[in-house]
Nucleic acid binder design. Structure first.
Length: 131
DNA sequence: ACATTGACTTGTT
DNA sequence: CAACAAGCCAATG
């Protein structure tokens, strides 16, 4: 029995590196209706100079895990997904709009209004409600 | 182990 | 605004 034939601990892939897990954890903290830049996420994840890694990690995000990846945009307030793919940014845009994030005429999000500031309490609406 | 690539950022031309 | 370069780290081949 104790045969050597016990299932070897298969080396499945696995385990996302700690780096990735930290990045995903940071992304999950972004509140609904807010956005964060890749640089912000990198900083939240403890890798202040690694915005590229954030993009890499998100691209490698396994499907099936809950992650608000659409709340991550680049430092210019634009969607970085799908460069080279016409309309590739639309799905992300729709998700954000559904959360109340509005885009400017240029397809850019006014970060002054929607960028998440972890040090401040989250408001329900980024724009001053008209009355 | 080496070279290349990448959902980026910032600064310079 | 567009094009380039440097920086910085992990995944891939």
């Amino acid at each position: 029995m104790t045969g050597p034939a016990r299932k070897a601990p298969r080396a499945r892939k696995p385990v996302l590196s700690k780096t990735y897990q930290r990045i995903y954890a940071a992304v999950r903290r972004i509140p609904r209706g807010r956005v964060a830049t890749y640089g912000d996420v990198a900083r939240l994840a403890g890798m202040p100079r690694q915005p590229r890694l954030v993009g890499y990690a998100l691209h490698a995000t396994p499907e099936g895990i809950r992650l608000p990846w659409h709340r991550v945009v680049n430092a210019q307030g634009r969607i970085s997904l799908g460069r080279g793919v016409a309309g590739g940014e639309l799905p992300q845009r729709f998700r954000l709009e559904r959360e109340g994030v509005e885009f400017g005429p240029n397809g850019r999000i006014p970060l002054d209004s929607y960028r998440w500031d972890p040090s401040k309490p989250v408001r329900r609406s980024a724009k001053p409600r008209r009355q």
